[in-house]
């Protein structure tokens, strides 16, 4: 996937998170990756925490169609309407915003605008954003539909790829986690184990 390209559009938004629909089926960003969308006053950054593909019509369930076929592609070729009936959405936890020159690791004043375009951040942008690991506090404390620890680990793994010395980044991030989760050694352990 070409990083930095437009991948989705905001279809639901609140101060703390937003939902975006992908332009292409099954082509959502990876779990934990950093995405951004243009707000009215600022650029809003978020971490993808849940990716879901579902039927657009809540009344029509997807049914299995490939019993007689060799590959998955054949299913889509034989049923071209499927691409229009299904949709890939992803949920994003807002972790910061850029207003003017200032990059802030806390919630923006306004939620992401509906139909705002969503981009996957470039490596340089990830590096810039992850210079401060203050956003980890927001993620750790969030109540999400998926396991927070999984999201944290996935996010740090994603971010570490932006660094030439990914180990050093992970150690730095691990120490920040240790500070946040100091009182809960078991949870810390389980997150740390997922960082590799």
């Amino acid at each position: 996937m070409d990083l930095g390209t437009k991948v989705a559009e905001v279809i639901e938004a609140s101060s703390a998170e937003f939902v975006a629909q992908c332009y292409k089926l099954d082509q959502g960003p990876a779990l934990g990756s950093l995405v951004k969308t243009e707000g009215e006053l600022c650029e809003i950054f978020g971490i993808v925490y849940d990716v879901e593909t579902h039927s657009l019509d809540p009344g029509r369930r997807v049914i299995a169609r490939g019993e007689q076929m060799e590959t998955q592609d054949e299913v889509f070729r034989a049923n071209p309407q499927l691409a229009r009936l299904l949709s890939t959405d992803f949920r994003v936890l807002v972790v910061g915003h850029r207003q003017g020159d200032g990059l802030h690791h806390y919630l923006p004043p306004m939620p992401a605008p509906i139909h705002g375009f969503v981009y996957i951040c470039q490596l340089e942008e990830v590096q810039g954003f992850a210079q401060s690991l203050d956003f980890l506090g927001l993620v750790i404390d969030a109540r999400l539909s998926v396991s927070v620890d999984e999201v944290v680990a996935a996010c740090l793994r994603c971010f570490s790829r932006a660094y030439p010395d990914s180990h050093a980044f992970l150690v730095k991030a691990g120490k920040e986690l240790a500070r946040l989760l100091g009182g809960d050694a078991l949870r810390l352990n389980s997150v740390l184990k997922r960082l590799r």
Binding site: V171, G174, A178, G183, A185, L186, N189, L192, K193, L195
Partner: peptide, 24 residues
């Protein structure tokens, strides 16, 4: 965390050992 004494972290993993040194 006092529980770290009873269930020690996996320090055989150099990464974990490096992270927890000086923090928890």
């Amino acid at each position: 965390d006092p529980r770290a004494m009873t269930t020690p972290p996996d320090v055989a993993d150099p990464f974990i050992a490096e992270v927890i040194a000086g923090t928890t």
